[in-house]
Design a protein around this nucleic acid. Structure first.
Lengths: 223, 223
DNA sequence: GATCGTGCATTGTGATCGCAATTGAGAGCG
DNA sequence: CGCTCTCAATTGCGATCACAATGCACGATC
């Protein structure tokens, strides 16, 4: 039998388009403020405008894309201090809770996987590979959060990361990869090893606070 | 001749469809677990399936509708204790914060509007009008939250209400309108009048806790 | 009478077409 | 030389059509 596409996560075209645009947003290939058109995206991806519309509407619902109410034109949401502050606060509410819940169910397999991902994070930082760092950092956090078994909160956290993507690109553009070298992943791993929910909560909270502080400083410095 | 629709809030058809489905979800008119089809919704609303697709995709991105990964068929997410607990916790994180922020900017106009809406809430409760109660209660909370000037958090709260709508309908089905008669709106109004953010936070937190406790009891009783 | 297979109806998805509105630039006028 | 007006191109939106897949039900067979 002829095997299907190697992509197991998304068989539908609009899902692939969604992932493609999401990737471009997270890596900052679409600059904030500039407008994008459905047909241009469709031509660029080699599909008809229809699945692009679906993907764009999904992203707009997740606040990863903004639609001008008058124009109906699309653009990446602009970076404002207020937005960043709200996103930071929401992350501080949700993600430590997910980490604490995950710590209760941590096992050796999860620890091994997280250590492997964290090694990729450090490697990307050492090489200054921005894209790899962001991907690995995202993978680390969500491999942990998935263990919490809280689908609703997990989805909310995913939406927050999607909105923060453009901000992170700005941080890298201003302070460089060195500015984000310090994270609390080791502390989080220790907390998981000890199955200490409160320690995991503190470690992730510190990781978020420090990261968002740097982003805030970068955003304010860029005005 | 082309006669224009009197709807001024949203000129686009897919927005009207979105609002229509959203309304049915918030008021719980679509029962959880049952499947809905694009064409049936389109026929019911008198439009083509295309704008329904857009609206449904938006709602699916907001986790207000669930898509079966195999079937791709739509359904309202089922009611589980875990989901309700997560939604409850998320509401307790976000909404008191919004209330506190709004309390700092409260003015006479906002108070007057909220009092008018609260009167509608009480009237609906007196009459046992479930749909009116849910709509008025929603209007009360979000007329308040809008004042916080926190678009990101406001959107998150809106998504949460969209997801708990079906739960609320179940509560009414089991305990009746009397079971939800007690709310903390009066306390919230007093806090706004005094411009006391912490009092507003406590009032809304208590309102949410009590309401969600009743919903939890109703859900658990229904298993 | 029960079970399995086949056919039809329905569903979601994507492409193409048409329409109205907005944008952008170029021509024309002051 | 600058401003404005107009026209064409582009954009988003909605409808309709076509197609593959799934669900459902009726009927045939053991």
């Amino acid at each position: 039998m002829a095997e299907r596409k190697p992509l197991a996560d998304s068989q539908a075209v609009h899902d692939q388009v969604y992932e493609a645009i999401r990737e471009r947003l997270i890596t900052g290939r679409i600059a904030p403020g500039v407008g994008v058109s459905l047909r241009s995206l469709a031509a660029e991806l080699g599909v008809s405008p229809m699945p692009v519309r679906d993907a764009v509407r999904r992203l707009a619902a997740e606040r990863a894309l903004a639609v001008n109410p008058a124009n109906k034109r699309l653009s990446v949401p602009s970076l404002t201090a207020g937005r960043l502050e709200q996103l930071s606060q929401a992350r501080l509410w949700i993600e430590p809770e997910l980490a604490a819940r995950a710590a209760s169910d941590a096992d050796a397999g999860l620890l091994r996987r997280l250590k492997a991902i964290d090694a990729q994070v450090d490697e990307a930082l050492r090489l200054g590979d921005v894209d790899s760092y962001m991907g690995a950092n995202h993978a680390f956090h969500f491999a942990l959060y998935e263990r919490a078994g809280a689908e609703v909160l997990l989805a909310m956290a995913g939406g927050l990361w999607l909105q923060i993507g453009p901000f992170m690109r700005v941080v890298f553009g201003r302070v460089g990869a060195d500015g984000l070298a310090a994270d609390r992943h080791a502390e989080a791993l220790d907390a998981l090893k000890a199955r200490d929910p409160e320690a995991a909560r503190r470690a992730i909270a510190a990781d978020i606070t420090e990261g968002m502080d740097k982003m805030r400083a970068a955003v304010e410095a860029g005005r």
